[in-house]
Design a protein around this nucleic acid. Structure first.
Length: 417
DNA sequence: AGCCTTTGACCAGCG
DNA sequence: TCGCTGGTCAAAGGC
């Protein structure tokens, strides 16, 4: 066991079929996709490339994806600014750059929110790292802002993914953060950090972690991947074709709650992907995680955030959180205005609109602040997002053949106008 | 005792 | 129509 011979299966990012990027900025786009989203959005062509396999392909993806880092490398050396446009053009064309590392999320437009393994969506949303407050009309801040914030902070502290901020919610799950490795303390941080995420919303939000598999050294029980504050009951498990990892099916135990989630495991038993489906129609159960210790704090933290942080005022808790799904799914038109102008394609927008209706869910939450480091196996056009990134660090992570790059956002105004 | 996991079987959608 | 595959059900067992 110590020596893991075979290359760990790369985590996959679920990307919505094409239009993702566009939709991100469009319709619900305003849902401030946040860096993660952006990242995912950046991998447009993936869909094109995989287009064929899209649907069922969810599971299999991993093929030659370029690693985020790799892309970064390449991208960094490229001129960033105009990329946005290029990207769009290319996107449609289907640059195949986005590697197969990304798996296509549910084709049918089911708004699925894929959370990086080990990550809990709620943590996601609650986590200060993400800010998506539907109530705020577009999530409190535009994705640019979020991005800026995130990246900016990230630059200060190169923690990985949802660094400490996440710890609150994630901590619960973080039973043992041995994984934390370099990170220091926060147990959960480790988990999150190791994962990369991708978000695809609206039509397909998919947050996923990229280097997950081997990296999610989630010591915690595999079956309980993410403690998102809700109670889940496993109702099935199945080996999905094209993937060696078994997929587990969970249902929210709350009566009448339609929410389900699928958790895919890697060969080594670690979680490689979590897909949430549906919206909780109830309040999150009271600290069920208290026993976890850290969770308690998280919970409190969360609450304080809800009320004090201002994220609110508006029912940030459930509705906010879930409201996000609405946002993501583009159900809330009002907020869309935010980015309305930045929308690249209204046509797509409309199209997505239709899709959105079909969306079953999406989980969501927002980054409230802080640092987020996006890790993806396929960075593709990460830098093509129209933002300017600056590399401020690089690190070779154990177990990961690819060096990890830390980027800071330099500007965020380009997309706005 | 209640809740959860496991697991084989069944069902439905799709090509 | 058939086979494949993903998703769900439900009985049995465990904690």
């Amino acid at each position: 066991m110590s020596a893991r011979p075979p290359p760990p299966p790369r985590p996959r990012l679920s990307l919505p079929p094409r239009s993702t990027g566009e939709s991100l900025f469009s319709g619900t786009g305003d849902a401030s996709p946040g860096p993660l989203t952006l990242a995912s959005a950046l991998f447009p062509s993936d869909a094109d490339a995989d287009a064929g396999g899209g649907g069922g392909g969810g599971a299999s993806s991993g093929a030659g994806a370029t690693s985020f880092t790799q892309l970064l490398i390449g991208s960094l050396s490229q001129p960033p600014p105009h990329q946005q446009q290029q990207q769009q053009e290319r996107g449609r064309g289907g640059v195949a750059r986005a590697g197969p590392a990304l798996s296509v999320a549910p084709p049918a437009g089911a708004a699925v929110f894929t959370v990086p393994p080990g990550l809990s969506p709620s943590g996601f949303f609650d986590s200060p790292g993400l800010i998506f407050s539907p109530a705020m009309g577009g999530f409190g801040m535009s994705h640019q802002q979020a991005l800026a914030q995130v990246t900016a902070q990230a630059s200060h502290s190169p923690l990985r993914m949802f660094d400490h901020t996440e710890q609150t919610s994630f901590s619960a799950a973080a039973t043992s953060s041995g994984a934390l490795q370099n990170m220091s303390s926060a147990a959960n941080v480790a988990e999150m950090s190791e994962m990369a995420t991708t978000i695809s919303n609206n039509e397909h939000a998919a947050f996923q972690s990229a280097e997950a598999s081997h990296r999610y050294q989630v010591p915690a029980p595999v079956d309980k991947p993410a403690d998102d504050g809700y109670n889940w009951r496993k109702y099935g498990q199945k080996v999905v074709k094209g993937s060696d990892c078994p997929r587990s099916y969970y249902k929210c135990t709350h009566p009448s709650c339609p929410v389900k989630k699928k958790v895919e495991h890697a060969e080594d038993g670690q979680i490689s992907e979590i897909i949430y489906k549906g919206k909780h129609n109830h309040q999150r159960p009271p600290n069920k995680r208290a026993k976890d210790g850290s969770s308690l704090a998280a919970e409190q933290n969360e609450q304080s955030n809800d009320t004090a942080s201002g994220l609110s005022g508006v029912r940030r808790d459930q509705e906010a959180v879930y409201g996000m799904s609405e946002q993501l799914s583009g159900l809330s038109d009002g907020d869309d205005k935010d980015d309305g102008e930045s929308r690249p394609n209204e046509a797509d927008d409309r199209e997505s609109d239709c899709k959105r209706r079909n969306i079953q869910i999406s989980s969501q939450k927002a980054l409230t602040e802080s640092k987020i480091i996006v890790q993806t196996t396929s960075e593709v056009d990460l830098l093509d997002d129209g933002y300017r990134w600056r590399k401020y660090g690089q690190k070779v992570v154990k177990g990961n053949p690819h060096p990890r790059f830390f980027l800071a956002l330099l500007t965020v105004s380009c997309l706005l106008k």
